[in-house]
Amino acid sequence: MADAAPPAAPLEWGSSARFWRTILLYLGRNKSLAVGVVLLLGLASLVIGGYLFYDVKLAEPLSKMPARPPSADAWLGTDKHGRDLFAVLIVGTALTCKVGLLAGLIGVAVGTVLGFVGGFFRGWIDAAINLLTDVFLAVPPLLILVVIAANLGTSLSTTDMVFVIAALAWREPARRIRSQVLVMREAGYVNNARLNGTSSFGIIFKEMMPNLIPYLMVSFVLTVAAAVLAAVGLEALGLGPQNEPTLGMTVYWAMHYSASLLGMWWWVLTPVITLVVLFVGLYLITTGLDELANPRLRAKGA
């Protein structure tokens, strides 16, 4: 197993000081990862700071004069229900991230297991998993989500939302991981391990997993982004949780009352800009991680 070192270790993990120095140096070279991390950290510190220093209870209806433009009293104005939009931004971003992260985690976990089992063992089990993925890819995702959400009704909480979204989030990771496993199982070091008499279990966890980590990271961020996209989409259709001020629900009410027709630009722009920062941040991190996982892209530096 000594010769089984991965051909291109993405980074050298050393002591923690060296670890952080390596990370910072790498971020200096990988601009999109750096900008993405900065965007998300900025959003995160806004949310954390908001929870610490701002009265987030103002995100509930009728907490301020409704339909007011931004002022010293309400920095981002209020909507027609009298929600303080700055408080909505804080609470909504936190809720959206919670749904995205948890659903992404479940999706990647389930997808990885399915992708691994199919790609590694092949045969009928691979065919069955593939068919399952095909079927779920053929049904428009929003339909499944809409129907599940509509069934759960208005009592939906953001925790229910996590499971609704996770019900579909496994498809893409399953595909991605499977194709990566298919490539990997023919790699020289896996063959060596097999000839050495390493068990399947050993090959999976000692040989393939470490090399899959960069792909898993990319998959995770991609899945989180997709989960946030799906959650916000559902909420914007008015099918998300009704009692919690998510960003998507804010978009829904803004559309419902034709906020821009009423000239209430702050109502539309607050959730839209927050979501744009979130999506762009996630996207830049994915691109950056892709470069990390795919050293071939790094060398070109296009």
Partner: peptide, 22 residues
């Protein structure tokens, strides 16, 4: 354009409606 691609269609649509229509 690549950054725009990270944004869902309908959010772009909302902004377009606000700017070009209203």
């Amino acid at each position: 354009f690549m950054i725009l691609a990270a944004i869902p269609f309908y959010l772009v649509g909302l902004v377009l409606v606000y700017v070009f229509s209203l």
